[in-house]
Design a protein around this nucleic acid. Structure first.
Lengths: 217, 217, 217, 217
DNA sequence: TATGAATGAGAATTCATTCAT
DNA sequence: AATGAATGAATTCTCATTCAT
């Protein structure tokens, strides 16, 4: 396997080298998993010697955490920057979902790191932190929808904080699952994934807003 | 860490020992992941020596595949046996979700093996096979709902196979996400999780059945 | 691989079982070598359980030594019984060589045990002991030839004991090498091997008897 | 057991270290055999850590094959460079035998690797290839003698190719056997061994050249 | 006479990590 | 800024051997 960025160049500025290493690391971790990825492989893919990886990133664990952070930040940023807070809630949610699926489709290795590889100890905490940021953001979007409904129908959705949190968890979980599935399913576009989930979610949210709940028995 | 079944018993029939080993393996694989789990740890947890694990289960890979199969079978059986096909679709879905939630909550390690640890090479194919069985079953439940709607409203939901598959993926993903969150959230019961998801899902499905779709712009 | 003697029979007399085990052991040791042969394989090939092998033959080492002894004895017996001490020396030697090559060709595994597998520690001594018996016997044959020459030519060959020993070593070594080569060379008969060596040796011995020696410078 | 080259030296160039490792490997393989030799022992004898052996030589099998090749090459070179093709055949043979004896006596481990340890699967093919080169070279020496005889006596020895091959096998086998015996016999020099074999062989060859064959009945 | 159940000890191999330059 | 040389500590897997029946 040859290096990520083409021909091996010597004496690059530290920042550039670091990015090359992280690129190689995300690719390797995403495809192999944390344990199965070897520092040898990462260094070779990055086109540098192993000691240099250690010089810059200190250890395999730190390198992996750095990858988690970089990828989570990028994903969050992609979603955030796609959402215009001036628009109505449904359009905000749509935009967010579409951006999410687009980003995960374009960065399958990064998404694999976040969604699969980062969830075992000793990284679960770090990954959960990152994930919670996303969930919190989604919860905000749901909150916006609730307030809109409130104003429009003059009825308070009475969604407890825990309900919103649960919904956000479900939504993100559904999105994660769909994204993984979409990455494995040829011909599945980000638009399709987003539409599927939006259809699924919007009605359910609407119902909840109108306090029309399904109940067993 | 002491053995799974309490005091170390000697000279058990092969079938019993094998189950003990699989129990220990599922627990270890579920918590650590395939790579990080060591055969040493599994053997110790099972209360036997390593050679015996190899004598009965042949290799780490075969052991892991056996775990995947056993856990998938158990989960599927739990959901299937909870669903009465005579009942209306919503009650079938409710029963299925509730059983799914209950089983995954009661077998977090087995569920972790299926949903997270088994998805990297060289197990992706095997895991996909197993997970697809579950998703396919959920898809049949959705299909039942669609037919009922068809009969009741005299309108064909026109749900493409891929739509149903996507919905099932979303549903399972949401369920997993909720289950994890529920486990971390004090006072959150399996029943509550199931209700949250059912509420979320049923309205969305209903809308889809009635062909009332949300669409961008 | 199925057992050596056909269908697995239970409760055989000890002597018979032991022979079955030794047959399996010789075959396995001969083909794999001492280290690479496993007691599992030998037991399976013999059609018995491993503990029975240990009950009768005590250990892998003892089993191997027993194989060495049995095969050496058989080879020596084959050569001895083929030689008629009433005949002239050349015919005695011919008969011995022919018997040697015939036996090694018919028992390639046994011959492999003796000629190759038995020559490393801790079996070198045992193997040397067996080999020395053969060498001593060959030396006897050479001695017979010397005496005949003595009587015929009225000249003493003046072969020191060490010379005879060296010649016997060379002869046996040549025979060993030829036997191995013959076993690897399709279409090479025992008769051919024996003739080649006899031609080679008889003249050389004759010259030596007549004190016609080649000498450097 | 301490290292091959005396005090442990650090940070050597790769080529040097590789030779040290091969030295240790030949010694260990030669004395213990392939299976019984452990990489631990080889590494310790070479004065390096095991990982370095793997880094440079890849695996036990590759290491062993490398040993076979190196030793075969060295032996062949020793014999070849000792033979002056301008000399008469008997002197060529003498020089070759003497060199062969000297080299095998001075490199007993290398010779053990070639003549004994390398003859079991999966190395038999490789070893046969190497040994055949030596045997083939001896065969050419015999061929030279045959041609000389042809010219000198105006009679064609009519030695078939297979006859020559068999003679070469016998000669090499006799040499090996004598060498082993000589090593065990105090006061026995390489020169003496070579003389014994030459005496034994030259007359035999001479007879064959003159088509004076011994024949049974 | 015979065996299913079980293991202690050790084998090859890999990998994160560091040292000296 | 960068690397060739080197290793301690695991990890998977095997095998001769024994125990209890």
């Amino acid at each position: 396997m040859s290096e990520v960025g083409g021909a091996r160049a010597k004496r690059m500025p530290r920042a550039v080298r670091e990015q090359q290493m992280m690129d190689a690391a995300v690719q390797t971790f995403g495809q192999r998993g944390y344990q199965a990825a070897s520092m040898d492989e990462i260094a070779e893919l990055a086109g540098v010697s192993k000691p240099l990886v250690y010089l810059y990133l200190n250890s395999k664990e730190e390198l992996f955490v750095a990858c988690i952070r970089r990828e989570a930040k990028a994903l969050l940023e992609a979603v955030r920057s796609a959402v215009d807070p001036e628009l109505p809630a449904d359009r905000q949610l749509w935009a967010g979902l579409f951006a999410f699926f687009t980003h995960t489709a374009e960065n399958p290795d990064g998404w694999a790191v976040l969604s699969r590889q980062a969830r075992t100890e000793p990284f679960a905490a770090e990954a959960a932190l990152m994930r919670d940021e996303i969930v919190a953001y989604v919860a905000t979007l749901i909150g916006v929808a609730a307030q809109e409904t409130h104003r429009a129908t003059d009825r308070d959705p009475e969604l407890a904080e825990r309900d919103v949190a649960g919904l956000a968890q479900a939504l993100v979980g559904a999105a994660e699952s769909l994204a993984i599935w979409a990455n494995e399913t040829p011909g599945m576009t980000a638009r399709e994934s987003a539409a599927t989930l939006m259809n699924f979610a919007w009605a359910g949210l609407g119902n909840l807003m109108r306090s029309e709940r399904w109940s067993p028995r």
